[in-house]
Amino acid sequence: MSNVSTNTGIARWLGIAAILIILDQITKIAITSTFVYGEAMPVTPFFNLVLVYNKGAAFSFLASETGWQRHFFTVIGIGASAFIIYLLKKNQGQRLLSWALTLILGGAIGNVIDRILYGHVIDFLDVYIGNWHWPAFNIADSAICIGAVLFVYDELKRSKKPASGT
């Protein structure tokens, strides 16, 4: 009976990650079908939709390298995803931690799919103030960031709890 509830619990988190991956990929397909590379459409005084490609990692880290980074970040993304699935299976009863891991997992896989299919990550969300633009990002990046914040919050929350038995 324990294995049934364990499998159902992990399936729920993997299902949420799958929905996130689908949402990420649909938005990327919509943007690439609507925009040409570099095209921007103002939405608000601080937000544009724009089609850009990121061959690097977060904030275009290593984007100007010769191409080896595509394979490097793909392997890291796959390895991180496998480790996150292990952590989800091990900690699925911890709701906040599971949400954090699920968001990071969905985002990581969404960006790995881009690297495998296109050799770069498709970014399209452009937030700015005046002439200063935050690096463009996507749904997967947003999920990773939200998941990371939840992860840190969960860790801080747990570290403040007194140890049991003392």
Rank of each mutant, 00 (worst) to 15 (best):
D126Y: 12
Q94V: 00
Q92H: 14
A82F: 15
I139G: 05
L125Q: 04
L97I: 03
G130I: 04
L62T: 00
N91Q: 11
F137Q: 02
V112Y: 12
D123N: 07
Y86N: 10
I139F: 15
I76A: 12
S98P: 01
S64F: 10
S142A: 14
Q69P: 07
Y86D: 01
Q94G: 01
R115Y: 13
L88K: 05
A63R: 00
D141P: 10
K90L: 13
A100K: 08
I76E: 06
D141L: 10
A143Q: 03
I122H: 12
N111A: 02
Y128A: 02
A136E: 12
A100Q: 06
F137H: 09
L88G: 06
H133P: 03
A80K: 02
L87W: 15
W134D: 07
D126T: 06
I84A: 07
S81A: 14
A143G: 14
N131A: 11
W134Y: 15
V75G: 11
T102K: 08
F72R: 01
K90G: 01
I129G: 01
G67D: 03
D114T: 01
G119K: 00
L105M: 05
C145N: 14
I129Y: 15
G93N: 10
N91M: 03
L96G: 05
I129H: 12
G77C: 08
C145Y: 07
K89V: 03
W99A: 05
N111T: 05
K89R: 13
K90Q: 13
I129V: 12
V121A: 08
L125Y: 10
G77S: 14
R70M: 11
F124A: 00
A136G: 01
T102L: 02
A148G: 13
G130K: 09
G77H: 12
A148V: 12
T74D: 06
G107I: 07
W68S: 05
L103S: 04
F124L: 01
A82K: 02
I139A: 14
T66D: 13
N138K: 10
Y86S: 05
C145S: 15
N138P: 09
A136D: 09
I113P: 02
F72L: 15
D141I: 11
S142M: 09
A136Q: 07
Q69V: 12
H120Y: 15
L62F: 14
A82C: 14
G130H: 02
K89L: 07
G110T: 00
L87I: 01
L105C: 04
N138L: 10
G106L: 10
V121F: 13
I104C: 00
A100N: 01
L103Y: 10
A108K: 03
L96N: 09
Q92M: 12
E65P: 01
F73M: 03
H71D: 12
I122F: 09
G67S: 05
